[in-house]
């Protein structure tokens, strides 16, 4: 029992040192997002608080903490309070399996990619719960839109993951990264990378697929009734999810913590730096797309998910597996 408590203590220590960098980087990434958005639109973006406005998010967070939390009288209180907690927790819990280098990972489980997929598919609960518990029209409409959207795009993300797994032969995230030593999967599976990226935009409710919180029609969607810290938790969870999707994209397609090429000056740079720079690169694309693409109509969104992405990724799955089978390149498992 004592031994167990010791192990628990060590794990809690590790978890805290995983969570703090993630929360700080979420704050920084919000700043980056707003900054890129501003620059594309020829504005300055947040530039007042701290150097280059870096502390803007901290100032915002302080403001949210000191605001009053208002719970609508007609709301289902338990579910209403639970919703932002669920969103935030699920967004942070997934980081447990993301490998920053070969050894720098909290838990190197066998079914890492399934775990990531499961946690990201649970993310819809926070939104549905928030939308329903508010007991108000706009949040409910936003929640319904979001549930349908997330379930639809998960299907194509699942098939894209199968594509990658066929080439790797393992569900372990470190194995997926190591299998890309010869060639990053972004090259042979480039169409899948593009579809993964677009599905990730839809999965995290980012523009051009931000229908659940379309401000012109739904005020703020499922977040309408939330205020103060509870709103901030939704917001942090959303950005942590976006970072998670970027991390997933870089592990599946951009070689995770591997350097671009295994040659002298490049392989001196430590692995976590490569991983972080790949996540940042993908996030920059997310931010640019938010700035330059207009919002989709809802029926177009559904059509894109079910009638374009799903058949295409299935077709590519057949192509990949046939290629691997015909040229005898299927991954060998040694027992």
């Amino acid at each position: 029992m004592i031994e167990y408590l010791q192990i628990l203590g060590q794990e809690v220590y590790k978890i805290i040192f995983l969570l703090i960098p993630i929360l700080v980087s979420v704050a920084m990434i919000v700043w980056l997002d707003r900054r890129v958005w501003g620059l594309v639109q020829k504005r300055r973006g947040p530039n007042v608080v701290g150097p280059f406005g870096l502390f803007q998010t901290l100032a915002d967070a302080l403001k949210y903490i000191f605001k009053e939390i208002i719970i609508p009288a007609s709301a289902n209180k338990v579910v209403f309070i639970l919703a932002p907690i669920v969103t935030m927790t699920l967004a942070l819990v997934a980081w447990a399996v993301i490998p920053m280098s070969e050894n720098l990972v909290l838990s190197d489980i066998n079914v890492g990619i399934l775990y990531l997929f499961a946690v990201s598919s649970l993310g819809v609960y926070g939104i549905i719960m928030g939308g329903w518990a508010s007991n108000s029209k706009y949040p409910f409409l936003g929640a319904i839109r979001s549930a349908a959207q997330m379930v639809s795009y998960e299907v194509s993300i699942g098939i894209i993951i199968i594509n990658v797994l066929l080439c790797v032969g393992s569900l372990n995230l470190n194995d997926i990264v190591i299998a890309q030593k010869e060639m990053w999967y972004v090259i042979p599976l480039f169409p899948m990378f593009v579809i993964f990226f677009i599905s990730a935009l839809a999965e995290t409710n980012r523009p051009p697929f931000d229908l659940p919180e379309a401000e012109a029609e739904l005020v703020a969607g499922y977040q309408t009734e939330y205020s103060g810290m509870m709103y901030a938790m939704f917001w942090l969870g959303e950005y942590a999810n976006i970072l998670l999707m970027c991390a997933m994209g870089s592990i599946l397609f951009l070689g995770g913590w591997l350097p671009i090429m295994d040659i002298f000056p490049l392989n001196l740079i430590p692995a976590p730096v490569w991983m972080i720079s790949k996540i940042l690169f993908l996030f920059l694309l997310f931010a640019l797309i938010k700035a330059i693409v207009p919002r989709y109509r809802y029926d177009q969104l559904m059509r894109l998910g079910w009638k374009v992405f799903l058949p295409f990724s299935l077709l590519y799955l057949i192509l990949t597996s046939s290629f691997l089978f015909y040229f005898d390149k299927l991954p060998k498992v040694d027992f």
Binding site: F117, S121, W132, G158
Partner: peptide, 25 residues
């Protein structure tokens, strides 16, 4: 572990969402 994760993905991630959807609607 595979069964556990698939249970989470299929039942919690998809089936229960549809249940919730229907009950709310």
């Amino acid at each position: 572990e595979f069964l556990g994760m698939i249970l989470l993905i299929v039942y919690v991630g998809a089936v229960a969402v549809l249940f919730l959807f229907v009950v709310m609607m």
